[in-house]
Structure formats: C-alpha cells, structure tokens
C-alpha cells in the first residue's frame, strides 16, 4: 500500500494561509489503513485547525469529508457540488489523490496535508517499511524475493557493498542489509547460483526521468460509439 504521514500542523497552517473556509478531504483506502488520512484523522486534524486558527485570532470554518478512493473520478465527483463554498481544499490523501482533486476540480485549489512517503507494509502495529520503488522492471525473481532497489541504500544489483556488517547497513544499524537478507534466503532456497551471475546495468528508463509513466490496455479501453 501507499504509506504517508501527516505534515506538521504549523506547515499545514502556513499552506492554508488566509483561507477562511476549508474542506478537509480524507481517503478511505491506503492512508486510512496507515492511519494518516482516513475519516478519523480528518476529524482530528479539522478540530486542531479550528482550535489553532481560533487561538491565532482568525477562526477558520473547517468542514470534513472522506471519500472511498480519492484517486478515482467516480469517488470524488460527488464532491463537486460542495466545493464552490470553500476557499481551499486540504487533502489527506496521497499525492495521487491531491492531484486527482486538482485535475478534476480546476477552479478549486487542493493542498496536500500529508507527505506521501513510500510503498510498503506494516511490519507490526505502528511500524511501516518500504518494500517497492515501482521501478517498472521487477527483479524480485533474481534476488530471492527481496528488493535491493527499495531496500539497499545504494540500490546495488550485484551483492553487498563493503559497509554491510553483522546483518545491518552502514547507513543505520536499524536498517537490515538487503543483501544479507537476499544471501541468507538464497542459501535457504538453494538459489545461490543466481546471485553469482553478473546483473547488467539496470534500464532506468522504465523507472523515472522520462515524464509520467503510462500504461494503455487496449483490451480494457471503452471504445466510443461512432
């Protein structure tokens, strides 16, 4: 899932500037599951904004709404009729949701209330960690199912750097060395040979730097009637 965390309140206040009427819009999917921008967090943030703006002497009117998925037109379209009454929208969705709102409702500015952080999973209650960087060319089949692009600090493809020791990364002892994990699992699975092959330079054109990536599935497109 997409994991995000809320921006500091002071930063949000600054983003909102002199807006008097604000709609806080949450999202019922990933950011609800990671406790960053669901209905509950929308309620808490809205209260905080009301209090803070009151304390600062120019009270804000803050309303709340949460949609099932802020990244799909059909879920955000019903918001349209309400938007006219607000100076700005504060989205508690990921960056995709924020942009979906801005794209769909060009007359209303939607501001981000979260920092979209990574694609990951909850390792345990309250702890999330990155697992995928959406590089566009999955190599998990070559690395014992553990991703060095997301989990190695240097994105190495041919084994650990010299800084791997006692199972942890040189950058931080709280980061397990991805290549230690890859090696141990490959040994366990009897797939060490795979790690001895030289992996050629990665095709980063599938990953980034080429403008937004796009997938077109002709088999799924709706053909417009003549």
């Amino acid at each position: 899932m997409i994991v995000a965390e809320q921006k500091p309140l002071a930063e949000i206040m600054e983003l909102l500037g002199d807006a008097r009427k604000v709609l806080v819009v949450g999202c019922g999917t990933c950011v609800t599951v990671c406790f960053a921008g669901g209905e509950k967090e929308v309620g808490i943030l809205a209260s905080a904004l009301r209090m803070m703006s009151k304390l600062e002497g120019h009270p804000m009117e803050v309303d709340e709404a949460t949609v099932q998925r802020q990244c799909e037109w059909e879920y955000i379209d019903p918001l349209e009729e309400r938007l006219g009454e607000y100076d700005v929208v504060l989205s508690l969705a990921c960056g995709i949701g924020v942009q979906a709102m801005n794209e769909r409702f060009p007359d209303t500015l939607t501001l981000p209330g979260l920092n979209t952080t990574f694609l990951g999973l909850p390792e345990e209650q309250g702890v999330w960690e990155e697992r995928c960087q959406a590089c566009g060319d999955c190599i998990l089949g070559l690395t014992a199912g553990i991703c060095p692009i997301a989990r190695c600090s240097k994105q190495l493809l041919n084994g650990p750097c010299g800084g791997s020791q006692n199972g942890v990364c040189e950058v931080d002892p709280d980061i397990p060395c991805a290549w230690q994990l890859i090696w141990e699992r490959a040994v366990k699975l009897g797939r060490v040979d795979q790690l001895l092959e030289i992996q050629p330079p990665k095709d980063w054109s599938k990953s980034r730097d080429g403008g937004p990536r796009k997938i077109v599935r002709e088999d799924l497109r709706l053909v417009e009637a003549e």
């Binding site: 084994g159 750097c161 790690l195």
Partner: peptide, 18 residues
Amino acid sequence: AANPFGDPFEFRPYRLAK
C-alpha cells in the same frame, strides 16, 4: 575493492569473483 571483513562473509569471495 574487496572487503574481507564485510558480511555476509560467505558471499565475499564470490563477490570478488564477480
């Protein structure tokens, strides 16, 4: 470069071989 003191130690000679 080669680091005989890095881990996983078992992998280090193979990394050199690569």
